[in-house]
């Protein structure tokens, strides 16, 4: 019986100077083929200048159930943002 081609996630840099962004996924029998398939599927309209592919099973993801403990504690650390600090308006370039 046939075995599925594994799933890969595709990341594409749309132009130099920008980061790679997740574009979607596809199936391929090995990483080289995944890269070529990504080129054929996801860059038909000049969407990219660079491709990363990674086997979906190699991705470690956070669990939405842990949203509270992972992300909410950052909410009250407003001193990490420039607007926390009161400076006179006349002051420029700071």
């Amino acid at each position: 019986m046939s075995k599925d081609w594994p799933l890969f996630e595709v990341f594409i840099r749309s132009k130099n100077g920008l980061e790679h962004r997740h574009m979607g996924s596809l199936h391929a029998s090995d990483p080289e083929m995944a890269m070529e398939n990504a080129r054929d599927v996801y860059t038909r309209r000049q969407e990219g200048v660079s491709i990363w592919v990674v086997a979906s099973t190699d991705i470690t993801a956070s669990n939405p159930k842990e949203y509270g403990e992972l992300f909410e504690p950052a909410a009250d650390k407003i001193y990490r943002h420039p607007t926390f600090y009161d400076l006179p308006d006349e002051l420029k370039h700071i």
Binding site: W5, L26, H27, A28, E36, N37, D40, V41, R44
Partner: peptide, 11 residues
């Protein structure tokens, strides 16, 4: 034989 290959051949 599958979608990825179909698309590649058409390219």
């Amino acid at each position: 034989p599958n979608l990825e290959t179909d698309i590649a051949l058409t390219n």
